[in-house]
Computed example of a mutant assay.
Amino acid sequence: MKVYSPEFKADAVALYLSDPGHTFEGIGMDLGISRETLRNWVRAERARRGESGTTSTNTEGVPVSEATKQELEAGMAALRAELKTVRKENQKLATERGAACSRARCPRRTGPGRSIAAGTCRRGSPRS
């Protein structure tokens, strides 16, 4: 196991914490250490400072203007409506794909003057 000086550890942690865009992997590669080693050093430093190790998504107690809240709720409603529409379209496409696959497997395809015999498929055998 390699031993690193306290100064090196402190500099590595400071470098990582200096920019939210930094990753453990990127800084670790730049410094020649594993990402897990750097992650452990950062965790230890955050614990020493009394900081949380992860970003919190809990927004309770955070002041939000009424206009912002309404904008967010309207945006969420629009996204839910879009999701509902996309799911319906997806279901429709899945149904159409299934029908197309069934027609493609059957030698008696529909067309001018042709029709699929009821209940039959490939080689005239009953569909299962």
Results as ranks from 00 to 15, higher is better:
59 T>Q: 06
89 E>K: 14
6 P>W: 01
93 L>N: 10
115 S>P: 00
96 E>G: 03
30 D>G: 07
50 G>R: 05
93 L>D: 07
122 R>N: 03
62 V>S: 02
29 M>S: 15
84 K>C: 06
56 S>L: 04
50 G>S: 06
33 I>Q: 03
70 Q>F: 08
80 R>N: 10
27 I>F: 02
111 G>I: 02
97 R>I: 14
31 L>T: 01
86 V>T: 09
70 Q>K: 15
54 T>H: 13
62 V>L: 07
53 G>Y: 09
59 T>K: 12
33 I>T: 06
116 I>M: 13
39 R>Q: 02
51 E>P: 04
21 G>E: 14
84 K>S: 13
26 G>D: 07
128 S>R: 14
20 P>N: 07
124 G>E: 01
84 K>V: 11
88 K>Y: 06
39 R>M: 03
128 S>I: 12
7 E>S: 05
35 R>K: 15
64 V>F: 05
110 T>Y: 10
68 T>Y: 06
66 E>D: 05
69 K>A: 14
119 G>T: 08
80 R>L: 12
66 E>P: 08
27 I>C: 06
52 S>T: 13
69 K>I: 12
106 C>W: 02
38 L>Y: 00
128 S>D: 10
69 K>V: 10
66 E>V: 08
128 S>M: 07
55 T>E: 11
81 A>Y: 03
21 G>Y: 10
79 L>E: 08
74 A>G: 10
127 R>T: 09
67 A>I: 09
79 L>S: 11
61 G>Q: 01
91 Q>C: 05
38 L>D: 04
90 N>A: 13
68 T>P: 01
7 E>I: 11
82 E>S: 11
119 G>R: 06
4 Y>H: 09
116 I>E: 14
53 G>K: 13
47 A>H: 12
77 A>N: 04
87 R>C: 09
92 K>N: 13
118 A>F: 11
72 L>P: 02
31 L>S: 01
1 M>R: 14
12 A>M: 00
51 E>L: 07
98 G>C: 07
94 A>W: 00
17 L>N: 13
124 G>S: 01
5 S>T: 15
125 S>V: 11
47 A>Y: 09
107 P>L: 04
13 V>F: 01
61 G>V: 03
21 G>Q: 14
83 L>E: 08
9 K>E: 10
105 R>D: 09
18 S>K: 07
39 R>H: 04
105 R>W: 02
80 R>E: 15
16 Y>S: 11
38 L>F: 00
15 L>E: 15
74 A>Y: 06
30 D>Q: 15
123 R>G: 10
94 A>D: 08
24 F>W: 05
62 V>W: 03
36 E>D: 15
66 E>T: 12
99 A>I: 10
114 R>E: 02
83 L>F: 07
52 S>Q: 12
49 R>V: 07
57 T>C: 11
73 E>D: 14
38 L>E: 05
46 R>F: 01
17 L>I: 04
49 R>D: 02
44 A>I: 07
99 A>D: 06
36 E>Y: 11
82 E>Q: 14
71 E>W: 09
